[in-house]
Amino acid sequence: MGCSSSVPARSTGGLNTVSNDSSSATDSKDLRAKLVLLGDSGVGKSCIVLRFVRGQFDPTSKVTVGASFLSQTLALEDSTIVKFEIWDTAGQERYAALAPLYYRGAAAAIVVYDITSPESFSKAQYWVKELQKHGSPGIVMVLVGNKADLHENRSVSSQDALEYADKNNMFFIETSAKTADNINQLFEVCFEYIELFVFKQHIRGEANLAEDKT
């Protein structure tokens, strides 16, 4: 399939974007995590969410206006239940001014581009910069190259994306909403990162756990 992923070293501390309801919620291993998807128009943000939440792929899914909201609960191996609250934003630049409303308070931002579109990769980099400037200091960022099933039309190499992700302390993964490749993995990994950087730190006041992982 050609989907690749990487876990870059990460040494950011100071994660305070707490998305679990309260400490009691964390005690019972019942967590909530707010995620936001950002990226250029037509890269497949809504399709990724729909694939994850409903297990469906609809190439004609409606244009997102402003943002849409979906949630999905995921049971992890250690019997933790995570409820993802996912904000799927509109891709057009004109709506970019609204994005802070959605990424404000998000535990993780999933920045999506289309592996067949270099423009969308540039746009992804714009979003990363935007998040670095205006996002919550501890927001977990994931770079996603979608439409991996169209590898014959690939114009953004995995290597370039990986390097960019490494440089910016992001997790990188290639997905295909169409074939469902790596979609669940994306959200699982998102959660792992949130857990590392947000929940655990919140509970035990620990920081710099990234090294454990990597």
Binding site: S41, G42, P59, T60, S61, K62, V63, Q92, E93
Partner: peptide, 16 residues
């Protein structure tokens, strides 16, 4: 140019 691209993206996913 951007308009043209996005219009085409949106047209094929219009509500039916």
């Amino acid at each position: 140019e951007t308009c043209q691209r996005i219009i085409r993206l949106d047209a094929v996913r219009a509500n039916d």
